[in-house]
Write a protein that binds this DNA or RNA. Structure first.
Lengths: 152, 152
DNA sequence: TGACATTAAATGTATGTACATATATTTGCA
DNA sequence: TGCAAATATATGTACATACATTTAATGTCA
């Protein structure tokens, strides 16, 4: 076996049952992926949540998006989109203007600089796989199926 | 099919390839598990990282542990054990004393209150599965294997 | 021995999550 | 019409991660 089993990674030789093991394995693997992801993003000065919001805004472009729309489309729906937009605005990657037809809402738009950054990332960072080159497409599909089933 | 596929959960009908899909599925599922975990822990006033450190300290008890040992044993090795110990100390669940044989190091010990809390959680919160009742033990083992393989 | 590197832990700063609350605007209905 | 409920966003607080820097103690070796 050429890869590190979870027992070795966390130096815990046994688990009470396969459920406890897969739980720890999932948490560990997600953290492992997040760390690799962060490394790829670091040179570009944005984080994964910021990238995800930029991608949604590019999808809407040139139409604006509201915070509500961002929350709907985000992976983690409970996160705080408003403050992530703060960061993107500070870097001039997005603009915020009051929505004319509903002054409670805010129109958020990706700027040219934001589009250029995404384009640059498309060409470089996102070309490389995120660390999933060790499994076959079939195994990836099987893994997805098991995860879906796990969540009920 | 009685469960929600990831496509439905995040309302994205298609993915570029099974790798992108399994990546998003992993991140999503780990977040889903973390949220369920947090709900179970909330009544006890501690978080998952705090719980993990308490468990390590119980494993050492009555011997002390140093911050270094905690970092080694923790799931996420880059996290900040020192500050998590701060929180546990504030709740009087652990004590900190300078290590007599190496005054750079700090001896951290679980208190009686800490042991009592863990014992109470053993009897209640940890009896219930964390949300993994939807897969069989065999599927759990298969999932663990795929995750190990994914990390290379 | 004494300067310098190493080690152990703590701290500073930026970012993000989770949850509650605040503020402003709009909607709905008595 | 006017007032309460709902909506859209922002803000406050606690906690955690990530990474760099600081402080103190210990090792090392010329």
């Amino acid at each position: 076996m050429q890869f590190m089993k979870i027992e070795d990674e966390i130096k815990q030789p046994t688990f009470q049952n396969p459920y406890q093991k897969v739980y720890i394995n999932l948490v560990y693997t997600a953290g492992w992926l997040a760390q690799r992801q962060a490394e790829i993003f670091r040179p570009y000065g944005i984080t994964l949540p910021q990238f995800n919001i930029l991608r949604i805004l590019r999808g809407q472009h040139p139409k604006p998006a509201t915070v509500n729309l961002l929350i709907e489309r985000m992976l983690d729906k409970t996160s705080n989109a408003s403050r992530i937009v703060d960061k993107l605005e500070a870097k001039a990657l997005v603009t915020r203007t009051t929505c004319p037809s509903n002054r409670r809402a805010v129109d958020i738009r990706i700027t040219e600089a934001g589009l250029a950054l995404l384009h640059q990332m498309d060409e470089t960072a996102l070309r490389q796989p995120i660390g999933l080159q060790n499994i076959t497409p079939e195994e990836a599909a099987q893994l997805s199926e098991l995860l879906d089933k796990l969540r009920g």
